[in-house]
């Protein structure tokens, strides 16, 4: 088996090297860009950090101070079911409500054509999570952009972080009533742990994102914070003000896996 795989690998290497010569071919396929815009709401209201008060399905009032999450392993799907996989090294983004630029993900070098859906992971896949630190730059740099989105004591990224205040939360060391939802865990290095990676499918309905050499199509995806509390399982601030490395993190991940929905496509 090993030997077969080995020869397959060689064959693949050879095939890859031969096709790489085609770059000189004048008939290079047309490429273009797609923009994914993440727009965060709380139910029917826009998400505003710190100042707006919202109410979850349990009647608990809360404010949001932080909403960050990783979007990775993006795939664009065509109506015929085929898909374009965004190259791994260009497929990691950290979306932060506090940083408007981060909510706009531009994907370049996308083959021209029509796309009818996008899928992505919330979080960082296990392969990348265990890769050499030199392969984890940009959004994934724990000493840079990923600062605060990385568990140093249990090596791994925080996939999604939702923090806020609520009169239902206990008083913390800073004198504030805060809740902390940090979800990570990619399945473990050697011993199995929870795998809280979730793949999100966002079909565009009857709309199509057209990729061409012209202006990029911008796909707006709404992310509804209420779904984090009221999704597959209702989670309440009063009973669970802190969810981090615990079995409940899987419920939280199931909830936020349902928070995204297609909104519209516009020219960027």
């Amino acid at each position: 088996m090993k030997k077969t795989l080995f020869f397959l690998f060689q064959a693949a290497t050879l095939a890859f090297s031969v096709t790489s010569c085609k770059q000189d071919d004048p008939a290079t396929p047309e490429i273009g860009s797609v923009v994914l815009r993440f727009d965060h709401v709380v139910g029917s209201r826009d998400l505003v950090l710190n100042d707006s008060t919202y109410t979850n399905g349990g009647g608990e009032s809360f404010r949001v101070t932080t909403l960050n999450y990783f979007v990775s392993n993006i795939r664009l799907k065509r109506p015929d079911g085929s898909e374009f996989v965004v190259p791994q090294d260009k497929s990691y983004f950290l979306v932060k409500e506090s940083d408007a630029n981060s909510q706009k993900i531009t994907l370049d070098e996308i083959p021209a054509g029509e796309y009818s859906a996008v899928s992505f992971l919330i979080g960082v896949d296990s392969l990348r999570s265990t890769m050499d630190i030199g392969r984890r730059t940009g959004a994934l740099d724990p000493g840079g952009a990923a600062s605060g989105m990385y568990w140093d004591w249990n090596s791994g990224y925080i996939f999604l972080k939702l923090e806020g205040t609520s009169p239902l939360a206990p008083i913390g060391a800073n004198g504030q009533r805060s809740f902390f939802y940090h979800v990570g865990l990619f399945g473990g290095y050697k011993s199995k742990t929870l795998n809280n990676l979730r793949t999100i499918q966002v079909p565009f309905g009857s709309s199509r994102a057209t990729v061409s050499a012209g202006p990029a199509a911008a796909v707006t995806i709404k992310g509804d914070v209420l779904k984090i509390f009221d999704g597959v399982k209702a989670l309440r601030i009063a009973t669970n003000p802190d969810i981090m490395v615990s079995p409940l993190s899987a419920d939280l991940a199931n909830n936020y896996a349902g928070m995204f929905r297609f909104d519209k496509i516009q020219a960027n």
Binding site: I133, G143, D152, S155
Partner: peptide, 13 residues
Amino acid sequence: DGGINDLDLLPIS
């Protein structure tokens, strides 16, 4: 507790 498996990542903690 074996929370770190890669020496290169250890000093962050």
